[in-house]
Write a protein that binds this DNA or RNA. Structure first.
Lengths: 283, 283
DNA sequence: TTGCTCCTCACGTCACGTGAGGTGGC
DNA sequence: TTGCTCCTCACGTCACGTGAGGTGGC
Protein backbone atom coordinates (compact mmCIF):
# COMPACT_ATOMS: atom_id res chain seq x y z
CA UNK A 1 0.00 0.00 0.00
CA UNK A 2 3.00 2.22 -0.65
CA UNK A 3 2.22 5.71 -1.90
CA UNK A 4 5.40 6.18 -3.85
CA UNK A 5 8.67 7.52 -2.51
CA UNK A 6 7.35 9.51 0.41
CA UNK A 7 6.66 6.71 2.90
CA UNK A 8 9.49 5.40 5.04
CA UNK A 9 10.01 2.45 7.30
CA UNK A 10 11.36 3.23 10.70
CA UNK A 11 14.96 2.50 9.77
CA UNK A 12 15.02 4.88 6.81
CA UNK A 13 13.11 7.52 8.70
CA UNK A 14 15.52 7.35 11.61
CA UNK A 15 18.54 7.66 9.31
CA UNK A 16 17.02 10.61 7.50
CA UNK A 17 16.14 12.43 10.71
CA UNK A 18 19.35 11.30 12.44
CA UNK A 19 17.57 9.91 15.46
CA UNK A 20 17.45 6.37 16.84
CA UNK A 21 14.69 3.86 16.13
CA UNK A 22 14.21 3.56 19.87
CA UNK A 23 13.44 7.26 20.07
CA UNK A 24 10.81 6.96 17.35
CA UNK A 25 9.21 3.96 19.04
CA UNK A 26 9.24 5.83 22.35
CA UNK A 27 7.61 8.91 20.85
CA UNK A 28 5.01 6.60 19.36
CA UNK A 29 4.44 5.00 22.74
CA UNK A 30 3.91 8.29 24.58
CA UNK A 31 1.76 9.66 21.77
CA UNK A 32 4.17 12.39 20.77
CA UNK A 33 4.64 11.25 17.18
CA UNK A 34 2.50 8.41 15.86
CA UNK A 35 3.56 6.90 12.54
CA UNK A 36 1.35 7.88 9.61
CA UNK A 37 0.38 4.21 9.43
CA UNK A 38 0.98 1.04 11.41
CA UNK A 39 0.49 -2.35 9.88
CA UNK A 40 -2.09 -4.18 11.88
CA UNK A 41 -0.45 -7.62 12.23
CA UNK A 42 3.26 -7.09 11.88
CA UNK A 43 3.25 -3.85 13.85
CA UNK A 44 5.51 -2.24 11.27
CA UNK A 45 5.57 1.55 11.55
CA UNK A 46 5.39 3.69 8.41
CA UNK A 47 6.30 7.36 8.48
CA UNK A 48 5.36 9.92 5.83
CA UNK A 49 7.57 12.65 4.44
CA UNK A 50 5.27 15.23 6.00
CA UNK A 51 6.25 13.92 9.43
CA UNK A 52 9.85 15.00 8.96
CA UNK A 53 9.27 18.69 9.70
CA UNK A 54 7.03 17.67 12.58
CA UNK A 55 9.79 15.57 14.09
CA UNK A 56 12.27 18.37 13.59
CA UNK A 57 9.97 20.78 15.36
CA UNK A 58 9.88 18.35 18.26
CA UNK A 59 13.66 18.10 18.29
CA UNK A 60 13.99 21.87 18.28
CA UNK A 61 11.65 22.22 21.26
CA UNK A 62 13.57 19.47 23.04
CA UNK A 63 16.80 21.33 22.36
CA UNK A 64 15.26 24.38 23.99
CA UNK A 65 14.88 22.28 27.12
CA UNK A 66 11.16 21.51 27.14
CA UNK A 67 10.16 18.14 28.59
CA UNK A 68 8.46 15.64 26.30
CA UNK A 69 5.31 16.12 28.34
CA UNK A 70 5.33 19.81 27.57
CA UNK A 71 6.06 19.17 23.91
CA UNK A 72 3.10 16.79 23.72
CA UNK A 73 0.89 19.59 25.01
CA UNK A 74 2.34 22.11 22.57
CA UNK A 75 1.85 19.81 19.61
CA UNK A 76 -1.67 18.84 20.64
CA UNK A 77 -2.85 22.39 21.16
CA UNK A 78 -2.14 22.87 17.44
CA UNK A 79 0.58 25.41 17.98
CA UNK A 80 -1.54 27.60 20.21
CA UNK A 81 1.14 30.24 20.35
CA UNK A 82 -0.09 31.59 23.68
CA UNK A 83 0.57 28.30 25.41
CA UNK A 84 3.89 27.94 23.68
CA UNK A 85 4.91 31.45 24.61
CA UNK A 86 4.12 30.77 28.22
CA UNK A 87 6.15 27.56 28.23
CA UNK A 88 9.09 29.26 26.58
CA UNK A 89 8.94 32.11 29.07
CA UNK A 90 8.94 29.67 31.97
CA UNK A 91 11.92 27.88 30.48
CA UNK A 92 13.67 31.18 30.03
CA UNK A 93 13.39 31.88 33.73
CA UNK A 94 14.60 28.40 34.62
CA UNK A 95 17.61 28.72 32.37
CA UNK A 96 18.51 32.14 33.73
CA UNK A 97 18.40 30.81 37.27
CA UNK A 98 20.42 27.74 36.36
CA UNK A 99 22.98 29.97 34.63
CA UNK A 100 23.41 31.88 37.89
CA UNK A 101 23.92 28.76 39.99
CA UNK A 102 26.29 27.32 37.40
CA UNK A 103 28.37 30.48 37.48
CA UNK A 104 28.50 30.28 41.24
CA UNK A 105 29.60 26.65 41.00
CA UNK A 106 32.35 27.70 38.67
CA UNK A 107 33.57 30.33 41.14
CA UNK A 108 33.54 27.84 43.98
CA UNK A 109 35.36 25.26 41.90
CA UNK A 110 38.01 27.83 41.07
CA UNK A 111 38.63 28.74 44.68
CA UNK A 112 38.81 25.09 45.70
CA UNK A 113 41.26 24.32 42.93
CA UNK A 114 43.33 27.35 43.90
CA UNK A 115 43.30 26.16 47.50
CA UNK A 116 44.66 22.78 46.47
CA UNK A 117 47.34 24.42 44.35
CA UNK A 118 48.57 26.76 47.07
CA UNK A 119 48.01 25.11 50.42
CA UNK A 120 47.53 21.58 49.27
CA UNK A 121 44.83 21.53 51.91
CA UNK A 122 41.16 22.28 51.63
CA UNK A 123 39.99 25.17 53.78
CA UNK A 124 36.48 25.17 55.15
CA UNK A 125 35.40 22.27 52.99
CA UNK A 126 32.45 21.68 55.29
CA UNK A 127 30.89 25.10 54.94
CA UNK A 128 27.47 24.78 53.36
CA UNK A 129 25.70 27.67 51.68
CA UNK A 130 21.94 27.68 51.67
CA UNK A 131 18.88 29.91 51.88
CA UNK A 132 16.75 30.43 54.97
CA UNK A 133 13.03 31.20 54.96
CA UNK A 134 11.45 33.86 57.18
CA UNK A 135 10.73 32.63 60.70
CA UNK A 136 8.98 33.78 63.86
CA UNK A 137 11.13 34.42 66.89
CA UNK A 138 10.21 34.88 70.57
CA UNK A 139 13.32 36.62 71.87
CA UNK A 140 14.95 39.10 74.20
CA UNK A 141 17.80 41.41 73.23
CA UNK A 142 20.28 42.53 75.85
CA UNK A 143 23.63 44.22 76.36
CA UNK A 144 25.74 41.95 78.50
CA UNK A 145 29.16 42.32 80.10
CA UNK A 146 30.34 38.70 79.82
CA UNK A 147 29.75 35.22 78.48
CA UNK A 148 28.77 34.11 81.97
CA UNK A 149 25.95 36.65 81.93
CA UNK A 150 24.91 35.43 78.48
CA UNK A 151 24.77 31.90 79.75
CA UNK A 152 22.52 33.02 82.58
CA UNK A 153 20.14 34.57 80.11
CA UNK A 154 20.16 31.40 78.00
CA UNK A 155 19.23 29.42 81.07
CA UNK A 156 16.37 31.75 81.90
CA UNK A 157 15.09 31.72 78.33
CA UNK A 158 15.19 27.91 78.24
CA UNK A 159 13.19 27.64 81.48
CA UNK A 160 10.68 30.25 80.34
CA UNK A 161 10.33 28.63 76.94
CA UNK A 162 9.66 25.19 78.35
CA UNK A 163 6.98 26.56 80.64
CA UNK A 164 5.28 29.16 78.52
CA UNK A 165 5.58 28.02 74.90
CA UNK A 166 3.41 25.09 73.73
CA UNK A 167 5.63 22.13 72.83
CA UNK A 168 4.21 21.80 69.32
CA UNK A 169 5.17 25.33 68.34
CA UNK A 170 8.52 25.34 70.13
CA UNK A 171 11.41 25.37 67.71
CA UNK A 172 15.16 25.46 68.34
CA UNK A 173 16.96 28.08 70.42
CA UNK A 174 18.64 30.86 68.45
CA UNK A 175 21.25 33.40 69.50
CA UNK A 176 22.03 36.45 67.38
CA UNK A 177 25.24 38.49 67.81
CA UNK A 178 24.21 42.04 66.98
CA UNK A 179 27.47 43.77 67.82
CA UNK A 180 29.33 44.30 64.55
CA UNK A 181 32.71 44.00 66.23
CA UNK A 182 33.44 41.19 68.56
CA UNK A 183 34.00 42.47 72.08
CA UNK A 184 33.76 39.77 74.75
CA UNK A 185 32.97 42.32 77.47
CA UNK A 186 30.40 44.27 75.47
CA UNK A 187 27.99 41.72 74.10
CA UNK A 188 24.85 42.77 72.24
CA UNK A 189 22.97 39.52 71.92
CA UNK A 190 19.44 38.44 71.14
CA UNK A 191 18.38 35.10 72.56
CA UNK A 192 15.14 33.36 71.86
CA UNK A 193 13.17 30.50 70.43
CA UNK A 194 12.07 29.93 66.88
CA UNK A 195 8.31 29.29 66.98
CA UNK A 196 6.24 27.60 64.29
CA UNK A 197 3.12 29.76 64.76
CA UNK A 198 2.39 33.27 66.01
CA UNK A 199 0.57 31.97 69.08
CA UNK A 200 1.57 34.56 71.65
CA UNK A 201 2.97 38.04 71.04
CA UNK A 202 4.98 37.92 74.22
CA UNK A 203 5.73 35.72 77.24
CA UNK A 204 7.08 36.79 80.65
CA UNK A 205 8.37 35.16 83.76
CA UNK A 206 8.24 36.33 87.37
CA UNK A 207 11.71 37.88 87.28
CA UNK A 208 10.69 40.31 84.58
CA UNK A 209 12.32 38.49 81.61
CA UNK A 210 10.17 39.03 78.55
CA UNK A 211 10.31 37.34 75.15
CA UNK A 212 8.73 39.37 72.36
CA UNK A 213 7.52 38.02 69.05
CA UNK A 214 9.21 39.34 65.92
CA UNK A 215 9.76 38.18 62.41
CA UNK A 216 13.22 37.08 61.43
CA UNK A 217 13.31 37.94 57.73
CA UNK A 218 14.29 35.40 55.11
CA UNK A 219 17.95 35.21 54.16
CA UNK A 220 18.93 34.46 50.61
CA UNK A 221 22.40 33.18 51.33
CA UNK A 222 23.67 31.80 54.59
CA UNK A 223 27.13 30.31 55.04
CA UNK A 224 26.62 27.65 57.67
CA UNK A 225 28.87 25.33 59.59
CA UNK A 226 27.95 22.97 62.39
CA UNK A 227 30.19 22.75 65.41
CA UNK A 228 30.02 21.05 68.76
CA UNK A 229 31.25 22.83 71.84
CA UNK A 230 30.69 25.87 74.02
CA UNK A 231 28.70 28.56 72.20
CA UNK A 232 31.08 31.24 73.45
CA UNK A 233 33.93 29.53 71.63
CA UNK A 234 32.13 29.95 68.36
CA UNK A 235 34.35 32.87 67.38
CA UNK A 236 37.13 30.34 66.85
CA UNK A 237 35.32 29.32 63.70
CA UNK A 238 34.75 32.84 62.50
CA UNK A 239 38.18 33.20 60.94
CA UNK A 240 37.66 30.03 58.93
CA UNK A 241 34.32 31.19 57.65
CA UNK A 242 35.66 34.65 56.96
CA UNK A 243 38.43 33.25 54.77
CA UNK A 244 35.95 31.04 52.98
CA UNK A 245 33.48 33.85 52.38
CA UNK A 246 36.13 36.16 51.01
CA UNK A 247 37.73 33.53 48.81
CA UNK A 248 34.38 32.83 47.16
CA UNK A 249 33.60 36.43 46.33
CA UNK A 250 31.14 37.09 49.12
CA UNK A 251 31.08 39.41 52.10
CA UNK A 252 29.28 39.26 55.42
CA UNK A 253 25.89 40.89 55.36
CA UNK A 254 24.25 41.12 58.73
CA UNK A 255 24.41 39.73 62.23
CA UNK A 256 25.77 36.22 62.63
CA UNK A 257 23.64 33.63 64.38
CA UNK A 258 24.02 30.44 66.38
CA UNK A 259 21.24 27.90 66.11
CA UNK A 260 21.02 25.16 68.74
CA UNK A 261 20.26 22.05 66.71
CA UNK A 262 19.90 19.98 69.86
CA UNK A 263 18.00 21.34 72.85
CA UNK A 264 20.66 23.02 75.01
CA UNK A 265 21.46 21.34 78.31
CA UNK A 266 22.79 23.80 80.81
CA UNK A 267 24.81 21.12 82.58
CA UNK A 268 26.49 20.06 79.35
CA UNK A 269 27.02 23.22 77.37
CA UNK A 270 30.32 21.88 76.05
CA UNK A 271 28.36 19.29 74.07
CA UNK A 272 26.06 21.80 72.44
CA UNK A 273 25.42 21.16 68.76
CA UNK A 274 25.37 24.59 67.24
CA UNK A 275 25.02 25.70 63.65
CA UNK A 276 26.89 28.92 62.97
CA UNK A 277 25.05 31.04 60.43
CA UNK A 278 26.56 33.97 58.57
CA UNK A 279 24.35 35.92 56.19
CA UNK A 280 26.40 36.75 53.11
CA UNK A 281 26.02 38.59 49.82
CA UNK A 282 28.03 38.83 46.63
CA UNK A 283 30.77 41.46 46.89
CA UNK B 1 26.09 1.78 74.83
CA UNK B 2 25.60 5.53 74.47
CA UNK B 3 28.74 7.63 74.75
CA UNK B 4 27.04 10.72 76.07
CA UNK B 5 25.62 13.52 73.96
CA UNK B 6 27.64 13.04 70.81
CA UNK B 7 25.87 10.04 69.32
CA UNK B 8 22.72 10.59 67.28
CA UNK B 9 19.97 8.42 65.94
CA UNK B 10 19.20 8.87 62.29
CA UNK B 11 16.29 11.23 62.92
CA UNK B 12 18.29 13.65 65.03
CA UNK B 13 21.28 13.46 62.73
CA UNK B 14 19.15 14.19 59.70
CA UNK B 15 17.54 17.21 61.38
CA UNK B 16 20.91 18.56 62.45
CA UNK B 17 22.41 18.17 59.01
CA UNK B 18 19.19 19.22 57.25
CA UNK B 19 19.09 16.17 55.04
CA UNK B 20 16.50 13.41 54.78
CA UNK B 21 16.71 10.06 56.54
CA UNK B 22 16.39 8.43 53.12
CA UNK B 23 19.54 10.19 51.99
CA UNK B 24 21.46 8.94 55.00
CA UNK B 25 20.23 5.38 54.44
CA UNK B 26 21.15 5.63 50.78
CA UNK B 27 24.65 6.89 51.54
CA UNK B 28 24.99 4.00 53.96
CA UNK B 29 23.84 1.58 51.27
CA UNK B 30 26.33 2.79 48.66
CA UNK B 31 29.13 2.97 51.20
CA UNK B 32 29.52 6.73 51.06
CA UNK B 33 28.81 7.37 54.74
CA UNK B 34 28.43 4.41 57.08
CA UNK B 35 27.02 5.17 60.53
CA UNK B 36 29.57 5.10 63.32
CA UNK B 37 27.67 2.11 64.68
CA UNK B 38 24.78 -0.09 63.61
CA UNK B 39 22.87 -2.18 66.10
CA UNK B 40 23.11 -5.77 65.05
CA UNK B 41 19.52 -6.91 65.50
CA UNK B 42 17.35 -3.84 65.19
CA UNK B 43 19.43 -2.34 62.38
CA UNK B 44 19.33 1.05 64.09
CA UNK B 45 21.94 3.44 62.75
CA UNK B 46 23.95 5.61 65.13
CA UNK B 47 25.92 8.60 63.91
CA UNK B 48 28.70 10.35 65.80
CA UNK B 49 29.26 14.08 66.04
CA UNK B 50 32.50 13.64 64.14
CA UNK B 51 30.50 12.49 61.12
CA UNK B 52 28.83 15.87 60.77
CA UNK B 53 31.76 17.63 59.09
CA UNK B 54 32.26 14.53 56.94
CA UNK B 55 28.68 14.69 55.75
CA UNK B 56 29.01 18.40 55.08
CA UNK B 57 32.12 17.79 53.01
CA UNK B 58 30.10 15.33 50.98
CA UNK B 59 27.29 17.83 50.53
CA UNK B 60 29.76 20.49 49.41
CA UNK B 61 31.26 18.19 46.79
CA UNK B 62 27.77 17.28 45.63
CA UNK B 63 26.93 20.96 45.33
CA UNK B 64 29.97 21.35 43.09
CA UNK B 65 28.36 18.82 40.79
CA UNK B 66 30.38 15.68 41.47
CA UNK B 67 28.52 12.39 41.20
CA UNK B 68 28.19 10.25 44.31
CA UNK B 69 30.47 7.72 42.65
CA UNK B 70 33.17 10.34 42.31
CA UNK B 71 32.65 11.51 45.88
CA UNK B 72 33.04 7.94 47.11
CA UNK B 73 36.40 7.79 45.37
CA UNK B 74 37.49 11.15 46.76
CA UNK B 75 36.54 10.19 50.30
CA UNK B 76 38.16 6.78 50.04
CA UNK B 77 41.44 8.06 48.67
CA UNK B 78 41.77 9.94 51.97
CA UNK B 79 41.63 13.33 50.37
CA UNK B 80 44.37 12.59 47.88
CA UNK B 81 44.37 16.15 46.66
CA UNK B 82 45.77 15.17 43.25
CA UNK B 83 42.75 13.02 42.48
CA UNK B 84 40.42 15.66 43.82
CA UNK B 85 42.10 18.38 41.79
CA UNK B 86 41.70 16.33 38.66
CA UNK B 87 38.03 15.70 39.32
CA UNK B 88 37.39 19.36 40.02
CA UNK B 89 39.23 20.36 36.86
CA UNK B 90 37.14 17.96 34.81
CA UNK B 91 33.99 19.34 36.36
CA UNK B 92 35.17 22.85 35.61
CA UNK B 93 35.42 22.02 31.94
CA UNK B 94 31.99 20.40 31.94
CA UNK B 95 30.40 23.39 33.59
CA UNK B 96 32.05 25.83 31.20
CA UNK B 97 30.75 23.88 28.24
CA UNK B 98 27.29 23.61 29.73
CA UNK B 99 27.31 27.35 30.40
CA UNK B 100 27.95 27.95 26.72
CA UNK B 101 25.12 25.72 25.55
CA UNK B 102 22.77 27.23 28.11
CA UNK B 103 23.57 30.71 26.88
CA UNK B 104 22.87 29.59 23.35
CA UNK B 105 19.57 28.12 24.49
CA UNK B 106 18.70 31.42 26.06
CA UNK B 107 19.41 33.26 22.81
CA UNK B 108 17.30 30.83 20.83
CA UNK B 109 14.47 31.06 23.34
CA UNK B 110 14.55 34.84 23.05
CA UNK B 111 14.32 34.81 19.29
CA UNK B 112 11.47 32.31 19.34
CA UNK B 113 9.57 34.36 21.91
CA UNK B 114 10.16 37.49 19.85
CA UNK B 115 8.88 35.68 16.77
CA UNK B 116 5.67 34.76 18.56
CA UNK B 117 5.24 38.33 19.77
CA UNK B 118 5.70 39.92 16.36
CA UNK B 119 4.46 37.51 13.74
CA UNK B 120 2.44 35.21 15.91
CA UNK B 121 3.95 32.51 13.75
CA UNK B 122 7.05 30.48 14.26
CA UNK B 123 9.65 30.91 11.54
CA UNK B 124 11.91 28.03 10.66
CA UNK B 125 10.85 26.00 13.66
CA UNK B 126 12.18 22.87 12.01
CA UNK B 127 15.73 24.05 11.51
CA UNK B 128 18.09 21.86 13.50
CA UNK B 129 21.59 22.95 14.44
CA UNK B 130 24.22 20.27 14.86
CA UNK B 131 27.89 19.48 14.34
CA UNK B 132 29.30 17.44 11.49
CA UNK B 133 32.44 15.30 11.66
CA UNK B 134 35.10 15.27 8.97
CA UNK B 135 34.25 12.97 6.06
CA UNK B 136 35.82 11.60 2.90
CA UNK B 137 34.38 12.68 -0.38
CA UNK B 138 34.84 11.28 -3.92
CA UNK B 139 33.74 14.25 -6.01
CA UNK B 140 34.02 16.35 -9.13
CA UNK B 141 33.80 20.15 -9.19
CA UNK B 142 32.48 21.88 -12.30
CA UNK B 143 31.28 25.24 -13.63
CA UNK B 144 27.90 24.66 -15.23
CA UNK B 145 25.55 26.89 -17.22
CA UNK B 146 22.22 25.45 -16.00
CA UNK B 147 20.37 23.15 -13.66
CA UNK B 148 19.81 20.76 -16.52
CA UNK B 149 23.54 20.40 -16.93
CA UNK B 150 23.89 19.84 -13.20
CA UNK B 151 21.32 17.10 -13.33
CA UNK B 152 23.28 15.46 -16.11
CA UNK B 153 26.38 15.46 -13.96
CA UNK B 154 24.44 14.01 -11.03
CA UNK B 155 23.26 11.19 -13.26
CA UNK B 156 26.78 10.46 -14.44
CA UNK B 157 28.15 10.53 -10.89
CA UNK B 158 25.41 8.16 -9.69
CA UNK B 159 26.16 5.65 -12.47
CA UNK B 160 29.89 5.88 -11.88
CA UNK B 161 29.47 5.54 -8.13
CA UNK B 162 27.33 2.45 -8.41
CA UNK B 163 29.83 0.80 -10.68
CA UNK B 164 33.16 1.87 -9.26
CA UNK B 165 32.65 2.35 -5.51
CA UNK B 166 32.26 -0.75 -3.30
CA UNK B 167 28.76 -0.83 -1.82
CA UNK B 168 30.00 -1.08 1.77
CA UNK B 169 31.96 2.17 1.55
CA UNK B 170 29.38 4.04 -0.51
CA UNK B 171 27.70 6.78 1.49
CA UNK B 172 25.07 9.33 0.44
CA UNK B 173 25.37 11.71 -2.50
CA UNK B 174 26.44 15.26 -1.65
CA UNK B 175 26.27 18.46 -3.68
CA UNK B 176 28.17 21.60 -2.66
CA UNK B 177 27.33 25.05 -4.00
CA UNK B 178 30.64 26.86 -4.15
CA UNK B 179 29.48 30.07 -5.80
CA UNK B 180 29.01 32.65 -3.06
CA UNK B 181 26.22 34.40 -4.94
CA UNK B 182 23.39 32.44 -6.40
CA UNK B 183 23.40 32.65 -10.20
CA UNK B 184 21.30 29.98 -11.92
CA UNK B 185 23.26 30.30 -15.13
CA UNK B 186 26.70 30.31 -13.53
CA UNK B 187 26.79 27.34 -11.22
CA UNK B 188 29.96 26.29 -9.44
CA UNK B 189 29.03 22.95 -7.96
CA UNK B 190 30.84 19.98 -6.52
CA UNK B 191 29.04 16.66 -6.76
CA UNK B 192 30.17 13.42 -5.24
CA UNK B 193 29.72 10.58 -2.82
CA UNK B 194 30.57 10.44 0.85
CA UNK B 195 32.72 7.32 1.34
CA UNK B 196 33.37 5.53 4.62
CA UNK B 197 36.98 4.57 3.88
CA UNK B 198 39.78 6.00 1.76
CA UNK B 199 39.70 3.00 -0.58
CA UNK B 200 40.48 4.66 -3.92
CA UNK B 201 42.04 8.04 -4.51
CA UNK B 202 40.12 8.51 -7.71
CA UNK B 203 37.62 6.76 -10.04
CA UNK B 204 36.98 7.45 -13.71
CA UNK B 205 34.48 6.44 -16.33
CA UNK B 206 34.90 6.08 -20.09
CA UNK B 207 33.58 9.60 -20.84
CA UNK B 208 36.37 11.21 -18.85
CA UNK B 209 34.39 12.01 -15.71
CA UNK B 210 36.71 11.69 -12.72
CA UNK B 211 35.87 11.67 -9.02
CA UNK B 212 38.80 12.63 -6.80
CA UNK B 213 39.15 11.84 -3.11
CA UNK B 214 39.32 14.77 -0.72
CA UNK B 215 38.60 15.40 2.91
CA UNK B 216 35.56 17.41 3.78
CA UNK B 217 36.62 19.08 7.03
CA UNK B 218 34.49 18.85 10.17
CA UNK B 219 31.96 21.60 10.74
CA UNK B 220 31.22 22.82 14.22
CA UNK B 221 27.80 24.25 13.52
CA UNK B 222 25.52 23.35 10.69
CA UNK B 223 22.00 24.71 10.32
CA UNK B 224 20.11 21.88 8.66
CA UNK B 225 16.66 21.44 7.26
CA UNK B 226 15.25 18.47 5.42
CA UNK B 227 13.11 19.06 2.37
CA UNK B 228 11.57 16.90 -0.30
CA UNK B 229 11.56 18.07 -3.89
CA UNK B 230 13.79 19.04 -6.77
CA UNK B 231 17.31 19.87 -5.64
CA UNK B 232 17.37 22.93 -7.88
CA UNK B 233 14.43 24.37 -5.97
CA UNK B 234 16.46 24.30 -2.81
CA UNK B 235 17.10 28.03 -2.98
CA UNK B 236 13.46 28.50 -2.01
CA UNK B 237 14.43 27.44 1.47
CA UNK B 238 17.47 29.65 1.63
CA UNK B 239 15.55 32.75 2.62
CA UNK B 240 13.95 30.92 5.51
CA UNK B 241 17.28 29.64 6.75
CA UNK B 242 18.88 33.04 6.26
CA UNK B 243 16.26 34.71 8.44
CA UNK B 244 16.68 32.02 11.07
CA UNK B 245 20.45 32.26 11.07
CA UNK B 246 20.44 36.03 11.40
CA UNK B 247 17.75 36.10 14.09
CA UNK B 248 19.80 33.72 16.22
CA UNK B 249 22.99 35.72 16.06
CA UNK B 250 24.81 33.60 13.50
CA UNK B 251 26.09 34.21 10.00
CA UNK B 252 26.76 31.90 7.10
CA UNK B 253 30.29 30.56 7.04
CA UNK B 254 31.11 28.58 3.94
CA UNK B 255 29.53 26.84 1.02
CA UNK B 256 26.06 25.42 1.52
CA UNK B 257 25.48 21.75 0.85
CA UNK B 258 22.69 19.38 -0.14
CA UNK B 259 22.86 15.85 1.17
CA UNK B 260 20.71 13.18 -0.49
CA UNK B 261 19.32 11.20 2.45
CA UNK B 262 17.69 8.73 0.08
CA UNK B 263 19.56 7.41 -2.94
CA UNK B 264 18.61 9.79 -5.78
CA UNK B 265 16.40 8.37 -8.51
CA UNK B 266 16.87 10.18 -11.78
CA UNK B 267 13.34 9.39 -12.89
CA UNK B 268 11.88 10.81 -9.69
CA UNK B 269 14.01 13.77 -8.78
CA UNK B 270 10.96 15.64 -7.50
CA UNK B 271 10.75 13.11 -4.66
CA UNK B 272 14.35 13.56 -3.58
CA UNK B 273 14.84 13.69 0.18
CA UNK B 274 17.51 16.32 0.62
CA UNK B 275 19.01 17.80 3.73
CA UNK B 276 20.08 21.39 3.22
CA UNK B 277 23.21 22.17 5.20
CA UNK B 278 24.48 25.67 5.95
CA UNK B 279 27.73 26.03 7.88
CA UNK B 280 27.31 28.89 10.34
CA UNK B 281 29.31 30.72 12.98
CA UNK B 282 28.52 33.21 15.71
CA UNK B 283 28.46 36.76 14.40
C1' DT C 1 17.64 -20.66 2.64
C1' DT C 2 20.14 -16.60 4.38
C1' DG C 3 20.63 -11.79 5.86
C1' DC C 4 18.21 -7.85 6.90
C1' DT C 5 14.79 -5.27 9.13
C1' DC C 6 11.30 -5.09 12.03
C1' DC C 7 8.74 -6.28 16.39
C1' DT C 8 7.90 -6.53 21.70
C1' DC C 9 9.40 -7.01 26.29
C1' DA C 10 12.44 -5.80 30.02
C1' DC C 11 16.33 -4.11 32.50
C1' DG C 12 19.46 -0.17 33.57
C1' DT C 13 20.34 4.76 34.30
C1' DC C 14 20.91 8.62 38.98
C1' DA C 15 19.89 10.00 43.52
C1' DC C 16 16.92 9.71 46.06
C1' DG C 17 11.12 10.65 47.40
C1' DT C 18 7.32 8.31 48.82
C1' DG C 19 4.41 5.06 50.65
C1' DA C 20 3.53 0.09 52.58
C1' DG C 21 3.90 -2.91 56.21
C1' DG C 22 6.10 -4.20 60.35
C1' DT C 23 8.94 -3.85 64.82
C1' DG C 24 11.36 -1.93 69.32
C1' DG C 25 11.62 1.50 73.39
C1' DC C 26 9.19 5.05 76.69
C1' DT D 1 -1.26 0.35 76.00
C1' DT D 2 -0.30 4.20 72.84
C1' DG D 3 2.65 7.21 70.00
C1' DC D 4 7.02 7.73 68.19
C1' DT D 5 10.96 6.31 65.78
C1' DC D 6 13.19 3.10 63.44
C1' DC D 7 13.58 -0.75 59.98
C1' DT D 8 13.36 -3.06 55.13
C1' DC D 9 11.43 -3.65 50.72
C1' DA D 10 9.74 -1.81 46.44
C1' DC D 11 7.95 1.33 43.09
C1' DG D 12 8.47 5.79 40.53
C1' DT D 13 11.25 9.38 38.32
C1' DC D 14 13.03 10.94 32.70
C1' DA D 15 14.15 9.82 28.13
C1' DC D 16 15.66 6.80 26.16
C1' DG D 17 20.17 2.89 25.29
C1' DT D 18 20.97 -1.71 25.10
C1' DG D 19 20.46 -6.38 24.68
C1' DA D 20 17.31 -10.75 24.39
C1' DG D 21 14.44 -13.46 21.78
C1' DG D 22 11.47 -13.92 17.96
C1' DT D 23 9.14 -12.97 13.31
C1' DG D 24 8.17 -11.30 8.22
C1' DG D 25 9.85 -10.02 3.34
C1' DC D 26 13.59 -10.29 -0.51
Amino acid sequence: VSKGGDVFRIGDFSRIARVSCRLLRYYDEIGLLKPAATERYTGYRYYSAAQLPTLNRILVLKELGLSLDEIVRVMQSNASSTDLRELLQTRRGEIERSLETEKERLRQLDTRIAQIDTGGQLVADDVVIRADPAQWLLSTRQQLPSFAAAREVIGAVVRLGKKAIPADTLGPLLAIAHAPEFEPDQLDVEIGYVVHSKASASVKDSSGLELKLRELPATERLATCVRIGLPEHAHLITGKIGAFVEANGYRLAGASRELFLQPPRLDRMAESVVEMQFPIEKS
